[in-house]
Design a protein around this nucleic acid. Structure first.
Length: 519
RNA sequence: GCCCUCUUAGUUCAAUGGAUAGAAUAUCUCCCUCCGAAGGAGGUGAUGCAGGUUCGAUUCCUGCAGAGGGCACCA
């Protein structure tokens, strides 16, 4: 809808003028408005009239108020647009076709997923959904850090728990290590593994747990990329290092190899994580040829952004193709006091615990509502208490109400309203009331919401839209009875309900939230 | 010390540089003869401080205060 209005304004202005069109927040400002008159000389009302002339049937009214120009969309145009949205196959609103890799969570396999991992997890999952809706080819990827020191440390921790090694402060603590040690004990008794091998074994075991947790919250990955198997074992680090050396970008100092002030190979000959990461991004950009790579990291890695971008540039890749999204850390608060979350100290709330206490859908919505850059304090007890008031239920309830009405219509054998697969033309020409039209205006916003989100990655917009759409529906439900005496009116309203069910269902599906039949 | 992020109703969050700063929740009133009240209608209530740029600043810039995070031959 917005791009349509923009196109009309552009036609009138004739030249490149920077302006924007937004959905209006207040009824007196119409349905949409633009600030275009701020940027051109002349009477705003005259400009408004010219715009109206350009698309007479589309606009019911175009009116300048001060320098703002407000648009009222005609009923026919609204209905036409709604039909268009409903009939879009799979709601795929564009076909942009970029090959995008989105890597998220990638928590080290040295412990269970914490609730903070959920933040980046849900963000990545939903962002991937959004990007798919505009036609991109999206690969969801989890990078498994199974090659560094932490694996050896994990192995030592397990051995220490079995009394086969000296306990140290740096070891991973917590019950999960003891449980893990118990599970591995049988195998370890037969074979005499070193710390690194034990670590690898333990990491594989923990990765199974991580996969289970993610499955439980409906986050799927296309690729689980093992640093050890796919990079180290295949000698990819060496290859990338050689490439960089050939291009004269590597310098030697104090026995180590450097790239632009960062160490690639330590003086003891061991590669750094930086080199592994370069090999990884070489794999993504050069070998697998992704047009765009999105990494979602926690705020504790923000200092690493410049380094990686520099490195990627050294590989000959335009660093703008690498988009890094930072999510602020989540602080765990208990009884008003902060608890440091640490796998080493064994102090954390796992994602599993959180989901068990608060519920899958409420957990998802809670994280998705918040912009990634907001700092969050998280109190498990409070979250549990508040989950009853989570807006997700408001949205799901609207969806349930749609279903309840349509069920009743079916029982009464009312026909001519159904929209199987969203293909049928909506028969809603005789809907006139404000709550009905308002609902239609909300429904029609779906493509704009998805497009904008695919553009700026602000996933919380989708969650907000879900609430707004639900409100428009609840409002309609309260004001108008759907199944009434007049047959035509009933059919029209049922069609509207059916359209709402489809679009609300699509929004829930983008958000990865369950579409319940009952609550 | 240097760098990044954040600061908006009691609380949790919105607002591509635009209009009278929106919601939710809490609180105070109302509304079930009804397709489910997990709902609807209304009241109260907010931009940390000081400058600057601009026709216009919650938004951009500078300084200050407060909160979180980062500054490794760790990953």
């Amino acid at each position: 809808m917005i791009s349509k209005i923009e196109a009309v304004i552009k036609k009138v202005l004739g030249k490149e003028v920077k302006f924007s069109v937004t959905a209006s927040e207040k009824p007196e400002f119409g349905h949409y408005s633009t600030n275009a008159a701020f940027f051109v000389k002349g009477d705003p009302q005259k400009l408004a009239d010219e715009i109206r002339q350009q698309a007479k049937n589309f606009f019911e009214k175009v009116e300048a108020k001060g320098k703002f120009i407000n648009f009222w969309i005609s009923k026919n145009a609204l209905l036409e647009e709604l039909n268009k949205v409903i009939k879009t196959p799979k709601f795929k609103i564009k076909n942009l076709k970029l090959k995008i890799n989105i890597e998220f969570i990638s928590a080290n396999p040295t412990g269970p997923l914490t609730m903070a991992n959920g933040r980046g997890g849900f963000l990545g999952d939903v962002l991937a959904n959004v990007l798919e809706r505009v036609g991109h080819k999206v690969t969801r990827e989890y990078y498994i850090n199974d090659a560094g020191n932490q694996i050896k440390l994990l192995g030592e921790s397990v051995l220490a728990a079995l009394g086969k090694a000296e306990p140290k402060d740096t070891h991973y603590q917590g019950n999960y290590i003891k449980e893990l040690a118990g599970r591995l004990n049988k195998e370890l008794r037969i074979k005499n593994y070193g710390a690194e091998e034990v670590g690898r074994l333990a990491a594989a075991e923990l990765l199974k747990e991580i996969k289970k947790s993610l499955k439980n919250v409906n986050i799927d990955f296309d690729i689980w990329f093992s640093e050890y198997q796919n990079l180290h074992k295949k000698g990819e680090l060496k290859k990338v290092l050689e490439t960089l050396e050939k291009n004269g970008l590597v310098s030697k100092r104090e026995g180590a190899k450097w790239l632009a002030g960062h160490v690639l190979v330590k003086s003891d000959g061991q590669p750094t994580y930086f080199l592994a990461d370069l090999a990884y991004h070489y794999d993504k950009f050069i070998k697998r040829k992704f047009d765009c790579v999105i990494d979602i990291w926690g705020a504790d890695h923000h200092g690493y952004i410049d380094r990686l971008k520099t490195g990627v540039k050294a590989l000959g890749v335009n660093p703008d193709k690498l988009k890094i999204i930072i999510t602020q850390l989540v602080r765990l608060v208990e009884n008003g006091k902060e608890v440091r979350m640490s796998k080493r100290a064994g102090e954390f709330v796992t994602l599993d615990e959180l989901v068990k206490e608060v519920g899958k859908d409420a957990t998802r919505f809670f994280f998705l509502m918040h912009a990634p850059e907001t700092h969050m304090d998280f109190d498990l007890a409070l979250a549990k208490e508040k989950s009853q008031k989570n807006p997700v239920y408001y949205v799901q309830y609207a969806f349930v109400r749609c279903g309840a009405i349509l069920r009743k219509a079916k029982l009464k054998r009312i026909k001519n309203y159904a929209m199987p697969a969203g293909r049928q033309e909506l028969r809603i020409k005789n809907l006139e009331s404000e709550s009905e039209l308002n609902l239609m205006r909300e429904l029609v916003k779906l493509p704009d919401v998805v497009l904008q989100t695919a553009e700026d990655c602000q996933v919380s917009r989708v969650a907000r839209y879900a609430s707004e759409l639900a409100r428009a529906f609840h409002n309609f439900y309260e004001k108008e009875r759907v199944i009434v005496e007049e047959k035509e009116l009933t059919e029209a309203r049922l069609a509207l309900v059916s359209a709402t069910q489809h679009i609300l269902g699509e929004v829930l599906s983008i958000l990865g939230i369950n579409q319940p039949a009952k609550m």
